[in-house]
Amino acid sequence: MNFFFNLGRYILLMRRVFSKPDDSREYFKAIGKEIVFIGYNSLLIVFVISFFIGAVITIQTAYNMTNPILPTYLVGLGTRDSMILEFSSTIVAIVLAGKVGSSIASQIGTMRVTEQIDALEIMGVNSASFLISPKIIASLCTFPILCLLSMVVGIFGGWIAGEFTGAVSSDQYIYGIQYMFIPYYMVYSVIKSVFFGVIITSISSYFGYFTTGGALEVGQSSTKAVVNSTLVVLLFNLILTSILL
């Protein structure tokens, strides 16, 4: 019951979000702000986790490949495909659900409980569209870029790790990451990241927008936003993978 209630209300909210904006100037300004907030401010965390995971995948693949028949360049291939297929889109999205999702929900939730949303409505502003659509548009622009950067940084991390630990030589790794490269995998990953961006920003906005009460409830909304957007990301990961691959 609760699920259908939320789904219905979510759909109605999204209809208001995508109605015609009141004033395009203010919207463009807001989109710029959100691109900085969602994209630029997430660069560091995406770089750090991608680098380390790329490094760890390389080392683990190398240590697990004890069979001498297998050439070591396969380590490079393994790192490349793990990063591209799954990590840079899905795992990065889950990390961003925690970082971006929780702050969107608490920002909008705070605006709700302190009557800032009422203040917008009373001025005649469509608050749903004004607050939420710039975030969704910004996520459409930034998530694919974050995803691509994560691939590059992760594969680079694997290279550094292979070099330093001696797990795989530089030549072998670089040969490996080019070996049997399928460009479509990147397209697949970028498409997923676009979906995940919209899922995270819209679901987090939803939970923030319908916060009632006070500071305590803002915290609860923020938790709900993270949990639910993570679950939906995982669900869509399954659906998109079965459609696209």
């Binding site: 004033d23 920002q107 009557e115 800032q116 203040a119 001025m123 502003v125």
Partner: peptide, 25 residues
């Protein structure tokens, strides 16, 4: 309307707050 808690937009400066309805409408 003046709300019970003021309801100023807390990510905007005072000037931006007052300019907001003007810029919007």
């Amino acid at each position: 309307m003046v709300f019970q808690g003021g309801a100023l937009f807390d990510s905007s400066t005072l000037e931006e707050n007052v300019m907001f309805p003007l810029r919007m409408f």
